[in-house]
């Protein structure tokens, strides 16, 4: 699932970054402040965060900065991550998403405290076996692929084009209620596939 060519991201000062499961790399950052692990995470995620930001219409310099900031947040917040809170790529996605929202608000402080740093007592059972990162990606991507085109469109426009539901309604030329019902239908189909992944 990941590209195999990594020469671009080789640090001039360090060794070639290694490949490992992101959850394991984050654990090494948290426990040992392991820079090799941080480098490996950078190789896997920074170029993808930048790509996602570019797709969202962010300019190249800002997209680069957001990717940098997201990876620095991973370094600073690694000890908040635990695999039973979700897949590593999901956690990194939420960090990048929140940074982009903050930047868009042009404000130094978030108007609300994100749940990420707050321990919320969970009643859900923990400790279920986690699938490998690559399996999660494959499962969800496949789930998205099998959605009917009209449902996949509203999901992609929401997540990748960063369009609000009313913007999607305008763009696709359907009522807001239809956008919502398509999202609901899409979720109903995705849910069984997402059920044991997080």
């Amino acid at each position: 699932m990941y590209a195999t060519i990594m020469t671009e991201a080789k640090s001039t000062t360090g060794a070639m970054p290694e490949r490992a499961e992101p959850a394991e790399l984050i654990r090494r950052v948290a426990e040992r402040r392991d820079k090799a692990a941080l480098s490996a995470l950078f190789v896997q995620f920074a170029p993808r965060i930048k790509s996602m930001m570019l797709r969202l219409g962010v300019d190249a310099a800002h997209a680069e900065d957001l990717a940098q900031e997201a990876m620095l947040s991973v370094w600073r917040k690694a000890h908040f991550y635990s695999p039973d809170k979700g897949a590593a790529s999901t956690w990194i996605f939420t960090i990048a998403r929140n940074l982009r929202i903050d930047a868009a608000r042009r404000q130094s402080n978030r108007p609300y405290v994100d749940l990420e740093g707050i321990e919320v007592e969970s009643e859900a059972p923990h400790g279920h076996a986690l699938l490998e990162q690559s399996q999660i990606v494959a499962r969800v991507s496949k789930a998205l692929e099998v959605l009917p085109e009209e449902q996949r469109e509203v999901v992609r426009l929401s997540f990748i084009k960063e369009m609000s539901q009313s913007e999607i309604a305008q763009r696709v030329g359907i009522p807001l209620g239809t956008v919502k019902s398509r999202l609901r239908l899409a979720y109903d189909r995705l849910r069984p596939l997402l059920e044991d992944l997080h």
């Binding site: 699932m1 190789v43 990162q133 999660i136």
Partner: peptide, 30 residues
């Protein structure tokens, strides 16, 4: 957690944009 997973999967399956030269060193310095 489930709906975030959609975003996580889309991120992980993004193509790789090229980072500027020295980006990793910049991160390690920071």
């Amino acid at each position: 957690k489930r709906t975030d997973l959609i975003g996580g999967a889309l991120l992980a399956s993004e193509p790789e944009a090229e980072m500027v030269p020295g980006a990793l060193d910049r991160l390690l310095a920071a």
